[in-house]
Simulated assay, not measured.
Amino acid sequence: MTDVLRISAFPAPSARNGGNPAGVVLDAAGLDETAMLAIAAETGYSETAFVLDIQEPAEANGPGRVRIRYFSPTAEVPFCGHATVATAVALADRHGTGLLLFDTAVGEVAIETAETANGETTASFTSVEPSVTPMDDDVVDRLLSLLGLARADLDPAYPPRLSFAGNVHPVIVLGSRETFASFDFDPSRLRELMDEHGWAATVTVLSPLGESEFAARNLFPVGDITEDPATGAAAAATGAYLRAIGAVKPPAQLRIQQGDHVGRPSLLRVTVPGSGGIVVTGGAARIE
């Protein structure tokens, strides 16, 4: 029987039942795709991570290398930020903190684990090289319509974009906190649009909270899930998006609050350098 660890990544400080649950299989060497998909479906979380192989450092004090794959209950996902953080913390508990290199379907992802002064283990991953591109007007209009929104609901300072930092995320920013909190959508119709455009991860909807802080809702209709409590890949895409449109001046530190809409308060800390990958940091806790 395969041992599946259940770990919640990015819980907000002092929040009970916060963060995004992920399944983590630390010894998946003998599993094929069919088995991994079946385990992910049975686990029932938005993603489960499977560690296929761990290579020792090539030189003293060098990083270990981890071959990893991610599956939702219905399909393989190229990259998953919260499952990466959960896996890194689980590996740190077993082998100690330090730098690891994850070999993923989107390329090499560096992740550093460390222990805080209060004994918490945190993980910081650096995304692959991001890219941000315009979204066609008709796609924007269709997406807004599915969310019961209109162009007038957008914050004019933040144009809609497609942002990639491991997965492609459509990013829209709303001007009203009330609208952000109250919009709703039909999961099946949104899933059709996402599949049509190859959006394998989440649709990211943001609301500015103040300087360097945003509320996020990440829409992820898959199985019984409609929204993600915490989305590391989307946090990286958000940092890349804000850098690309000139909304932050690197080096910048961001805080993203997520998960309130699904009862799992989460906090993701994002570092935006002047160039290259975006760094996302968070903690993780075992689900008993």
Results as ranks from 00 to 15, higher is better:
F10L: 04
N20M: 09
Y45T: 09
E47S: 00
T43H: 03
N17E: 12
A28V: 07
N20Q: 08
F10I: 04
F50P: 04
A22W: 03
A38Y: 06
A35M: 13
F50C: 01
A28C: 09
A41G: 14
P21K: 03
A49L: 03
S8C: 10
F10M: 04
D32V: 11
P11E: 00
G44H: 09
P13G: 02
E47I: 03
A41P: 01
A41L: 12
A12K: 09
G30C: 04
P11V: 07
I7G: 00
T43V: 11
G44Q: 11
P11H: 03
I7W: 01
F10P: 05
D32F: 09
V25G: 04
A29N: 09
G18K: 06
A41K: 12
A22N: 06
G23H: 04
P11R: 01
E42V: 04
T48V: 12
E47F: 07
V51C: 04
P21N: 04
E42K: 14
T34G: 14
A38K: 13
A40H: 01
G44I: 10
M36H: 03
G18N: 08
F10E: 02
A41W: 01
L52D: 12
P21Y: 07
G44F: 12
L52V: 07
E47A: 03
R6M: 05
